[in-house]
Nucleic acid binder design. Structure first.
Lengths: 229, 229
DNA sequence: GAGTGGTCTAGACCACTGT
DNA sequence: CAGTGGTCTAGACCACTCC
């Protein structure tokens, strides 16, 4: 299998330090030629490498060497900013949208909301080490937090609930899956539509055992390691 | 994008119930012709469908419609057999190998073993609803369990430790990742080499806070949903 | 405008599966 | 044995990024 040999060859270049984190690989055409093969076979090799988290690609920009992964415990870590800080990663958050919406069915069920409840929905883009890394969706029920409709869209929702409502979670309900990127996610993250993302859904529960915040982090799988406890 | 339309068309056939769980899809050549395209484009569509867990393929046998997922809480569920039983799935376990080996570095570190420790290593194949679904590796330190070297290779290790040593875990340390299948895994599970598996690593800890069992479940991602708490 | 990946065509031969 | 997926060739045009 030619593509496996190509994969190993590129992998070795990475392991040996010839290609460093964040560096761009030569173009598919150049690589294909240098391995005397076609682009299809070459892409097969790169796709396999991407699965193991060694490289990733950005839509129409090229293939890059992955950085180390961020360790994330979704059961205890509710504030993703703190996770990045603790591991001293350079990160930036920017708001994609913030709206007051009728709770979608799935959200209403998870947060145990009555019909026709409104939630504040924030969508954010996380940039980590200069790379568009994740899209995050946060949903907080309006009824529990009366002033929340006025929240600044760039505010940290987790922090806001903690400061203004003393709502802090020690423990979350968590769901982990892999799933293809949606249209919004692929265009926001500059990845090809339908490519794989790690999806981490957290439901934060307060002292009174009430779910007060639901958040979904959809992050490139080569960037995160999920470790619990 | 033609392949997205093909993907949607096949997806709709599944959702509508025309193609049922476990059924085989027509061959790639037949599908390609019926969508008036080439096998490469058709495979692109199927690969995307596979990522969302709707279909899976077996090496040289064809593409099949996925079944529902098994819900698994790796923090509390140490015995995978019980998980299957609780959800009333038909399953079978068979031993691939059982050996006494010098603990590999990573295992020794996780189980906090001194150098040159031996562990009992069991490798098992899980067949779920007639499908080769997962490979499981289990490591138990020999020193803690003197009689363990004589364990039957078909025995349930979790059950054995519970019955003979009263070792039962309420809570595990857990790591979740996606990773390409190894050679052993692909040939055992009849999947193509390097295809994606969900990898769940559990370290069971007893009352005295000592790690006594490490197990790794490598399972087709369309078969399992990880839900904690 | 040159270069990139995204998508697609129309074939081919091989190794393996199922009968 | 016929049929399947696994792998590969040698091109093509397009939409987009970067300079």
């Amino acid at each position: 299998m030619q593509y496996l040999m190509i994969k190993d060859a590129i992998e070795e270049q990475i392991e040996s330090g010839m290609l460093k984190s964040g560096h761009k690989l030569p173009s598919e055409r150049v690589l294909a030629e240098s391995f005397s093969t076609t682009r299809i076979t070459l892409r097969e090799a790169l796709n396999h490498l991407a699965l193991s988290g060694k490289v990733y690609k950005e839509e129409r920009r090229g293939w890059f060497v992955s950085t180390d992964t961020l360790s994330f415990n979704p059961v205890t870590d509710t504030d993703f900013a703190k996770v990045c800080q603790k591991q001293k990663w350079h990160y930036a958050v920017s708001s994609i949208s913030a709206q007051r919406v009728l709770a979608p069915k799935e959200i209403a069920e998870t947060l145990q909301l009555p019909p026709f409840s409104y939630v504040i929905m924030q969508t954010k883009l996380w940039t980590i080490e200069g790379r568009k890394a994740a899209v995050q969706y946060q949903y907080a029920p309006e009824k529990q937090f009366s002033s929340i409709a006025m929240i600044d869209e760039d505010a940290n929702l987790t922090e806001y609930l903690k400061v203004h409502y003393l709502c802090e979670s020690q423990k979350n309900r968590v769901k982990v899956e892999v799933a293809p990127a949606t249209e919004l996610e692929s265009s926001t993250l500059n990845i090809s539509s339908g490519s794989m993302l790690m999806s981490i859904t957290q439901t934060a529960i307060n002292n009174q055992n009430i779910s007060y915040l639901l958040q979904v982090l959809r992050i490139s799988h080569d960037l995160v390691t999920i470790e619990i406890e």
